[in-house]
């Protein structure tokens, strides 16, 4: 049932440019990316920078569903998306969208999770097994018979992720999955995505504005602007780069604190990406600072 994988990279984007039908400007402009299996990549940038467009190239929605002019190539585990339609890629790339409402169709959580597998025509026993797995792993057993559209926003997004993960994709792409959620639900969804990455070994591509939540677990941060990749690298380096500053992304407060402390002559050992990391840094620094002074 598994496709034989032909590449070391989960995703290879090669000289990719894309222009939607009926528009003049390129939504993506010569993008190059190589993402290894198991990475946790956060993509951010201002509105209209091409983040969503990039997401849609990864599972073949572009160029198959959204028509336009595409140059370059995308390979998912070595398979070109030009030759494969979205549903053929569904077992490699799962995609979760911003509005949970528009991606939940059925009248119970159980049926919702089964939907994708049913579409692929998989055997009933296998579907049962996967549904059970998803209900258990995403702690949805209690909501099994509930109608997804009657759940809270956070639970809806959880069901959306579970429904996609039931198809056992190797890559999970999420396009601003928390932007309609309240903070605590957003926090929980981000934690869930981390679990998918860590425990299931799935490569995660997460588009987010809320960096104070999203960066905590990221292994890589990509900044985009006007259809181009501006910076790409270690989250701690990228978030403190001058590009990040000039791009005007919401730099987490802990990073601001780190920078200001540095200006004051206090250098924490590591750029913090969460409150916990900052607190830890300050503590450690205080200890050595105190002892070295006394020593």
């Amino acid at each position: 049932m598994r496709t034989v994988l032909k590449s070391n990279y989960a995703i290879e984007v090669i000289n990719l440019s894309f222009k939607y039908e009926g528009t003049e400007e390129y939504a993506l402009n010569n993008v190059n990316l190589r993402i290894k299996e198991g990475e946790y990549v956060v993509i951010t940038g201002p509105s209209g920078s091409g983040k969503s467009t990039l997401c849609r190239t990864l599972n073949g929605l572009i160029p198959h569903f959204y028509r336009g002019h595409m140059e370059g190539d995308i390979r998912i585990f070595g398979i070109s998306t030009r030759a494969k339609r979205t549903h053929e890629l569904a077992r490699l790339v799962g995609m979760v969208f911003q509005e949970s409402e528009n991606q939940l169709f059925l009248s119970s959580v159980e049926r919702e999770i089964a939907f994708g597998l049913e579409n692929l025509g998989l055997p009933r026993d296998y579907i049962r097994k996967r549904v059970k797995w998803a209900l258990r792993n995403f702690k949805l057993e209690g909501l099994k018979d509930k109608a997804p559209y009657e759940l809270s926003g956070g639970q809806q997004q959880k069901v959306a992720i579970a429904s996609v993960m039931a198809m056992s994709p190797r890559i999970l792409v999420l396009d601003e999955p928390t932007s309609n959620l309240d903070p605590l639900s957003a926090f929980e969804i981000i934690a869930l995505i981390h679990q998918v990455n860590k425990a299931m070994g799935v490569t995660v591509i997460l588009v987010e504005h809320r960096l104070e939540l999203a960066l905590k677990y990221a292994t890589r941060l990509i900044l985009m602007k006007e259809g181009r990749v501006i910076t790409d690298g270690d989250p701690r380096e990228v978030i403190t780069s001058k590009e990040a500053r000039s791009l005007g992304i919401g730099i987490p407060k802990v990073v601001e604190v780190y920078k200001r402390l540095k200006e004051e002559g206090i250098e924490l050992p590591r750029i913090p990406l969460s409150s916990e990391e900052l607190a830890l840094g300050v503590r450690g620094c205080l200890a050595t600072y105190g002892s070295s002074y006394r020593g």
Binding site: F65, Y66, H87, A90, G94, M95, Q103, L120, S163, M167
Partner: peptide
């Protein structure tokens, strides 16, 4: 597009 991504129309 969400349907497409869930393998609808296979």
């Amino acid at each position: 597009e969400a349907l497409e991504a869930r393998g609808f129309g296979t």
